[in-house]
Simulated scan of single mutants.
Amino acid sequence: MTPPPHQETAPSANPLRRVALIVVLLALIFFVLSVFMERRTPSSSQAQVQAYVVGIAPEVTGRVVEVNVTDNASVKPDQVLFRIDPARYQIAVTEAEAALARVGQSIGASTAQVDAVQARLVQAQASRDNAAEQLGRATELTSRGVYAKTKLDEAQLAFDQAQAAVTAAEADLISAQADLGPAGNDNPELKQALAALERAQLDLLRTTARAPSTGVVTNLQLSIGKVVSAGQSAMTFIDVGTVWIAAAFKENSLEKVAVGNRAEVLFDALPGQIFRAKVESVGLGVSHGSTDPNTGLPTIRNNSGWVQEAQRFPVRLVMDDGRPKGVRYGSQATVVIYTGDHPVTNAWGSLWIRIMSVLTYVN
């Protein structure tokens, strides 16, 4: 029996080739998508929580007799932080009052009324200055959308009342000085004595240090008995009423970023939670470090490799609903900015930050 003739079969297609083509195609798609996302929905994991850090420094020198806060304690505006021994400053007030009395007697006038009015004026001026600071802070926070307009109205009313009190005290002082007689008003000794009394009374008020706004006292090193000097920081205060996010973005991502763009923020301290924010400002420039501060000689930036490292610029964002509980100064965050109504890139950006929110549980 004759065996059947040998039949040749066509070689089958290599399955790895199809897989390779699919991988290359997917890589190309993701590359194009990433290019669009980089400009329409930029993101950055180099972001930190920032706030105003204030060194609370006394305006007079002396020994601390009271510390009214504890480390990392929350404080309210105008709350007493610490007190300096007022004895020497009370003595200075007494001496100034005595000097003023002697001048008054020398010109035949009573200075009791002037003394009382002068003290009231100093107190009114101090209250007015504090109200002005609160008004400025409320104006800034209202413009950012952090405070409601009613907060600004309350601050404006408090400032107006404080200013009215200063005006009334000044008028009373003028009236009291007028009672000294025409010669007394222009008496240089009287003016000098009044200025000395005002300075002594103001120094006495400054022996009490108060919180400038709502915040937290941190890294407390102050204790009773310590001598503090005027102008030198005695404790660290973080203003929690003005918190923002400072994010560093590559400059080729900032083409469409503008003030008012909505954004989403993920904090490492709060994994799985995403918070709404908006762009408040975009940095105009950064330092190049082109001069060595020690020698004054120029420094040359040496880039190695084929691709130059991208420059980054700061973008400042503010939270829509204020500082979340548990977020601290310096906390790390991840940010994605939506520069417009782009359904595809916006969807990918939203998906990306939600994936990152899950991954933060294991970071």
Rank of each mutant, 00 (worst) to 15 (best):
138 A>T: 02
168 A>W: 02
183 A>C: 02
205 L>K: 14
187 N>W: 08
209 A>I: 09
146 V>D: 02
144 R>H: 03
158 A>M: 12
176 A>M: 09
158 A>N: 13
194 L>A: 10
206 R>C: 10
197 L>W: 05
181 G>Y: 08
146 V>P: 01
206 R>F: 06
131 A>E: 05
188 P>Y: 12
132 A>L: 12
165 A>T: 06
172 D>G: 09
199 R>T: 12
214 T>P: 01
158 A>F: 01
205 L>R: 15
138 A>N: 03
141 L>F: 01
130 N>K: 14
160 D>R: 15
217 V>H: 13
134 Q>W: 03
184 G>D: 04
132 A>R: 13
174 I>R: 15
205 L>T: 05
149 K>T: 09
197 L>H: 13
165 A>G: 00
171 A>R: 13
130 N>E: 06
160 D>G: 05
207 T>S: 09
149 K>A: 11
129 D>I: 04
195 A>E: 08
177 Q>K: 12
154 E>P: 01
132 A>G: 03
210 R>T: 11
175 S>W: 01
154 E>V: 08
145 G>K: 07
210 R>P: 03
173 L>A: 01
199 R>L: 14
161 Q>P: 05
202 L>G: 09
208 T>D: 06
173 L>M: 07
159 F>I: 00
128 R>Y: 03
202 L>M: 15
183 A>F: 11
212 P>Q: 14
141 L>W: 02
217 V>N: 15
